[in-house]
């Protein structure tokens, strides 16, 4: 808390020192200029003519959507079944792959720091790339269909489940692990008795959470030909 003396000899209090104040202004200035610069790039790349009639387009779209045509609904059963399968099987596959990766990535269970960085790379790559992009790639490789969707969902889930699970593993109590190691248990036994029971609740929670996200994600996979709900 800087306290300075005014010309009249009275002590004055300000929240920040003059230097801190100027640095603050400077940071704001830099931030605002960055924002304006970005805005300019976007506005240069935008056809404002199209934006002007946005209201008309929007009302047009909504008026065509309302009322919903319920007669069409019976045709949706199959796509919905496929969507559910993509989400469920994809999640299951993803979890199976994420499980060992998480154990290799957690600081306290990894066999070697090099393996740890490899596992972390897998997790980051999987997290960086949206399932829609995975699906797009897989459709060109496997052809359109449910399988591409399942694998896309699985590949994206590895990173999500893997990250949350390895964080949970790093937060376990070390003493039970130590106690199991002291009985002469092997590495795998230490994992299954000391670590696994402690992370099981977190693991179940993470899996269900990801399954929920995947149901929503798999509805849009149809856009690129993996699954069906949107494209019809």
């Amino acid at each position: 808390m800087p306290v300075s003396t005014s010309p009249q000899g009275q002590p004055q209090w300000r929240l920040r020192t003059t230097k801190a104040q100027w640095l603050g202004y400077l940071a704001w200035l830099a931030g605002i200029s960055l924002f304006l610069l970005c805005w300019k790039v976007i506005s240069d790349n935008t056809m404002w003519v199209f934006v002007e009639d946005a209201g008309r387009q929007g009302t047009d779209l909504i008026s065509r959507m309302l009322p919903p045509e319920w007669t069409y609904a019976h045709q949706l059963w199959l796509p919905m079944w496929d969507t559910l399968n993509i989400a469920t099987l994809g999640t299951a596959l993803g979890i199976m792959m994420a499980f060992p990766v998480a154990f290799l990535a957690a600081r306290n269970t990894t066999p070697h720091p090099l393996i740890r960085s490899l596992a972390l790379t897998i997790i980051v790559s999987s997290r960086s790339i949206n399932s829609l992009i995975w699906a797009m790639l897989l459709v060109t490789i496997l052809g359109p269909g449910v399988l591409a969707g399942i694998i896309a969902i699985a590949l994206r889930s590895i990173g999500f489940v893997g990250k949350l699970l390895y964080e949970a593993i790093e937060e376990i109590h070390p003493t039970p692990v130590e106690a199991i190691a002291a009985t002469g248990a092997s590495r795998m036994q230490v994992m299954s008795y000391g670590v696994l029971p402690q992370v099981l609740p977190a693991f179940a929670g993470i899996s269900v959470y990801r399954w929920d996200i995947n149901i929503r994600e798999s509805t849009v996979l149809g856009l690129v030909g993996a699954g069906v709900l949107v494209c019809s």
Partner: peptide, 19 residues
């Protein structure tokens, strides 16, 4: 591991696996 078998250890906070 074989050597550890012949040394039993008892801990301060019991160190049981709770679940």
């Amino acid at each position: 591991r074989q050597a550890r078998r012949s040394m039993g250890m008892i801990f301060q906070e019991y160190a049981l696996v709770d679940r």
